[in-house]
Design a protein around this nucleic acid. Sequence first.
DNA 1: GCCGGTCCGATGACGCGTCAACCAGTTCAC
DNA 2: GTGAACTGGTTGACGCGTCATCGGACCGGC
Lengths: 156, 156
Amino acid sequence: MTDGVNWLTAEEQHAWRGFVRLHERLMGRLSHLLQTESHVAAADYAVLVNLTDVPEGRQRYQDLARALEWEKSRMSHHITRMIKRGLVVREDCPEDGRGAFAVITEAGREAIAAAAPLHVQAVRSLFLDHLTAAELRTLAEISARVMERLDDAPER
Amino acid sequence: MTDGVNWLTAEEQHAWRGFVRLHERLMGRLSHLLQTESHVAAADYAVLVNLTDVPEGRQRYQDLARALEWEKSRMSHHITRMIKRGLVVREDCPEDGRGAFAVITEAGREAIAAAAPLHVQAVRSLFLDHLTAAELRTLAEISARVMERLDDAPER
DNA sequence: GCCGGTCCGATGACGCGTCAACCAGTTCAC
DNA sequence: GTGAACTGGTTGACGCGTCATCGGACCGGC
């Protein structure tokens, strides 16, 4: 090592770049498909899924943000956009004067009901169908392990 | 299946969501780190790497776009931004009146020289260090295979 | 040579995410 | 209770990526 930097080997580079590209391509396809076929953007989809998972389809911005690992600012911006699209409604929180709820609307329920099968089908045909059970397991393991290390790392 | 939709199993969902989250978190960390430590955004980095890979550090927009799998519009926008930052310069193409070259500047070379070790080090410590050789291989295989299928798919 | 089709890149409008600043409501120490 | 610190959400500015559209250059057949 003449320059003291531990450069990536060909295999490492290949695997890393493959991983990055794969995600980009998959998400590109997926969000494009969702957008054109069901008029629900990927981010909208994620929020709506969270809202339908919970009784009455209402959740604090806070909790949504935590669940999706979004910044509160992003959540606030995004919900206002979703309100404009009629997917969701904002409600004040009686217990905490600062708080706010996002509540899914009927249109929101219809939108996700239409989008979900498309989404699932796409995830299968674009991704899952091409993996073996063992590969799937390895992938899940990798994700869990690396994310755990990321949480630990004081980085930043 | 009462509703005719082949919903994801718990394992499938777990693996898929893990994969997506992992990429988001990794890229978030990585680009944040590059941005704050070396003032080179991830996208800039990608362009600069391509330019340094080639003699004289000059490439057609076209070729850069193909290499990075970017839309030509994105490339055009991004290069104009990079020009403003002084990382790169635009040159007309004598052979093809429509064409344009991006040429790396001295500042561009310095920027990437500073960023590259950081980048490599981060990819290692955030990701590669936590994978076994076998896992790395599996990941590369998966990426290659799925991307191949994506190319085939007439989708869109 | 000319004309339709194609290709390269530019441009403007728009939606999205981040950052920093901010405000009002809450909590906690004292 | 009062003030300081904290928290939940908002806002505005900004950079980025996409889409649609455009203009100019190239290429093919005729």
